[in-house]
Amino acid sequence: MPRLNRRLLLPVATGLLFLGVWQGVHLYLSDDLRFLLPSPGMVWSAWGEHGDLLRRATANTAQGALLGFSLAVAVSAGLSLLLSLSASIRSSLYPYLMALQMTPLPILAPICVIWVGAGLRSVALLTFVIAFFPLVVNTTQGLIATDRNLVELFQLYRARRWQQLFLLRIPAALPYFFTGLRIAATISPIGAVVAEMNAGSSAGDGGGLGFQAVIFASQAKYAALFATAATTCLLGFALNAAVLALSWTALHAWHDSYERTDR
């Protein structure tokens, strides 16, 4: 079991070490400066104290992040297929896809609010904008990087276009798609939170984690701010874990990125 030990014990050990150092720094600070770095215990209590608020905010953020993420997956799949058709289509569209990616969310946010209204709709739309690019780039790359010999094999057997697409190009692109999906799953919650800080909340839903962070900061509730940050991380981890599980299900039997089992 040494391998399992290493995979479980090492991260737990570094985590404990990190908490210890954090607590140490907190104690080292003089009383009047301790507010700058609340101790782990204070963050934990803030979590308890604002539990209801944070749970509701997490649900709102998760909703916006998942909506944007799903929209990005759906649109990128279609667009990647279109882009994979020809180099001319790629050269005509890539610069503008990149331009969209290059525009900072805080600038896009007010525009989105004017177009679709504040809150969930804007948050989902802004999350879509940032999650969409890594998906399109990776999936398109996967669709055009098909092994030349395999393409010729299909030509030789006079495969129809749809056969080549569904039996060859799409399965071959799956590992690339999952790479894009993992990046998108990591940046979606971040995008949603940044969007919330800039596009506010829908009437009555109390806002998401980003909205809540702005409020905590304005109230100088720093322990609560740390708790909000930790909650955002957890949300990101959860989405990542879901994508990893999906990726494992689709690829582990055949793809080299997973360990060989019976050689």
């Binding site: 092994d147 057997y157 055949w254 793809h255």
Partner: peptide
């Protein structure tokens, strides 16, 4: 006509049996 390439050129996501069946499936 059938062609055998320098490398095995199999579809890695298909089982051995499904690989042999590719030309029939097409």
């Amino acid at each position: 006509v059938a062609f055998v390439f320098q490398e095995a050129t199999l579809l890695p996501w298909l089982s051995v049996r499904a690989n042999v069946e590719v030309p029939l499936r097409l």
